[in-house]
């Protein structure tokens, strides 16, 4: 199995008081695999994914270590180089679709702008690409959506639009940070099925979540984070059937319904 992304000794500290927040985190993301990062609020899982995307403010956080992607250390690239990679090769789906879109701009225009920033296409071509991609996301009345402002659409619709945009540029890796946490169960199920289809195209995913159900449904590999450190890692089967740390066992026990209840 070849690795697409290799994270080595990632350390994040607060500039203000040198307090370490993420400590010596190392992991790999295999090509075409789904890596689940699980932890509770404050475990450092979101900061880790933001550090990979180079989204952390340097005035607040010091990021040290290596993020190897196709032979380059992403942490050492210039602003210009990074712009070519982010969005194009690595894209991110955020937790809150309501705040991830520009509220003053219609969806269609936001899609066209994203496409045109990376590909030499005309407005019309970019628009058509957007329409095609939205249709693939099980969305109806796509031309109406393209002509809508974000606040007129539901959270589930916006999340699907965000995934559509992330897929438009055919990235090699998608980071989904609590992407389904705020959604209804039925929409969550649709989105997670979508993740598996993305994987079938050979795209890797990092799925950040606090819910072992999400991990059970989509992940191949898992890392468990607590207080900024990786306390356990392995394949999804190792973690579920043979957890090593008490903390992982406790997280697994937080599922509500008893074992004998089988999910239809």
């Amino acid at each position: 199995m070849s690795n697409l992304l290799e994270i080595r000794e990632l350390n994040i500290t607060l500039v203000e008081n040198q307090r370490p927040i993420v400590k010596n985190v190392s992991f790999n993301v295999g090509k075409g695999r789904i890596l689940g990062i699980i932890g509770e609020s404050g475990s450092g899982k979101t900061l880790t994914s933001k550090a990979i995307m180079r989204l952390l403010n340097e005035k607040i956080f010091t990021v040290k270590g290596q993020v190897e992607f196709r032979g380059n250390n992403l942490l050492q690239m210039s602003e210009r180089e990074i712009e070519g990679v982010m969005g194009k090769d690595i894209s991110m789906i955020m937790q809150n679709p309501m705040t991830a879109f520009d509220p003053m701009m219609k969806i269609g225009k936001q899609i066209i702008e994203t496409v045109k920033a990376h590909l030499p296409l005309s407005k019309k071509q970019a628009y058509d690409m957007g329409v095609q991609q939205l249709k693939k996301m099980n969305l109806n009345r796509v031309s109406e959506i393209m002509n809508s402002y974000p606040h007129t659409l539901s959270g589930g619709m916006l999340q699907r639009i965000m995934i559509a945009i992330a897929l438009l540029l055919e990235p090699r890796i998608i980071i989904a940070d609590e992407a389904t946490t705020a959604l209804d169960v039925s929409t969550q199920s649709i989105i997670l099925d979508e993740f598996k289809k993305i994987q079938d195209k050979g795209i890797s995913l990092i799925v950040v979540t606090h819910d072992f159900g999400v991990i059970a449904k989509v992940a191949n590999d898992v890392i468990v984070m607590k207080d900024g450190e990786i306390i356990e890692d392995g394949t999804v089967h190792e973690i579920f059937y043979n957890p090593k740390t008490e903390y992982t066992k406790e997280l697994l026990k937080a599922r509500l319904l008893a074992d004998e209840v089988s999910y239809a």
């Binding site: 169960v185 039925s186 159900g213 059970a216 449904k217 992940a219 089967h237 579920f240 999910y263």
Partner: peptide, 12 residues
């Protein structure tokens, strides 16, 4: 449908 959408307890 709601039950079907529930996340699995164990990986498939």
């Amino acid at each position: 449908m709601l039950i079907k959408s529930l996340l699995p307890k164990l990986p498939s």
